Simulated scan of single mutants.
Amino acid sequence: MTSARGPGRPKLDPTVDNRQRILTTARELFSESGFERTTMRAIGRRAGVDPALIHHYFGTKSDLLVAALRPEVNVAAVFDGIADTDSSVGREFVHRVIDFWERDPQQRARAVALLRVAVTHEQIADRLREFIRGVATAALGEFVATDDSDRRVAMVMSQMLGLILARYVMKVPGIADASATELSRWVGPTIDNYLSGDIGGVSPDR
């Protein structure tokens, strides 16, 4: 016996990945209308799904925004062998981050959109911080001195967020038009110091 659909409820195609369809639609609407004016109902209507299904997959609208716009970064692939180069770890890290954004403008656009919203929405900022900390820890964890390691990772995050905002959001002259090699040469030593240098009153153990 099959159950009847409720009034107005769309019949879903079982061969379609509804989760992916919701994410794709959410990206479109967030881009077109912004976070505040986009509703779960509007996303459901365009995606052809019940809004309850969106809540089932993603929870709140903030959670959906992060899931839709969070860059897809294969940390192992992007940062593999980061210490096996002629550059310092800090310089290589900066170079690879910038190179990743330059080679994938779609991922970069999603990240920039997420950053813009995170500036004014605390819940989204919390989730973005978790994501960035996870990437930084996975990429650099083995190079972080054990003294005050949480602060060291936080300082790396702040440095890279500032660099990305200056280059891709505010488009600061001298930063926006610099090459990945130039930026890595300028910012890399600061990252190295945060990883294992003296960060103020704490003696590095490596």
Rank of each mutant, 00 (worst) to 15 (best):
R151A: 15
A77R: 07
V135F: 00
P71D: 02
A139Y: 00
W101K: 15
T38F: 03
R41Y: 12
G134N: 01
E92R: 02
P51T: 02
F93M: 04
R70E: 13
V75Q: 08
V135S: 01
D99L: 11
T60D: 08
R133F: 14
F58Q: 01
I43S: 06
F58N: 00
M40N: 05
A76H: 12
D50N: 12
L69C: 09
L64Q: 03
F30M: 03
S149I: 01
E36T: 14
R129N: 13
R110K: 11
T39D: 02
V78M: 02
E142K: 07
G81Q: 00
S149F: 03
I82W: 05
A47C: 11
R37N: 12
E92L: 01
I98H: 10
V112P: 05
L64C: 05
W101P: 10
F58S: 05
R46F: 09
D126S: 13
E72A: 13
D63C: 07
S33K: 15
E72C: 15
V94H: 00
R127G: 03
L114C: 00
F79T: 04
I98V: 12
I124D: 00
V94M: 02
R108V: 11
A125V: 01
G134P: 01
A136M: 09
A145G: 12
E72Q: 15
V89M: 02
D80F: 07
Y57W: 14
R21V: 14
D148F: 11
A77I: 03
R41F: 09
A68T: 04
A77E: 13
L140K: 04
L114P: 02
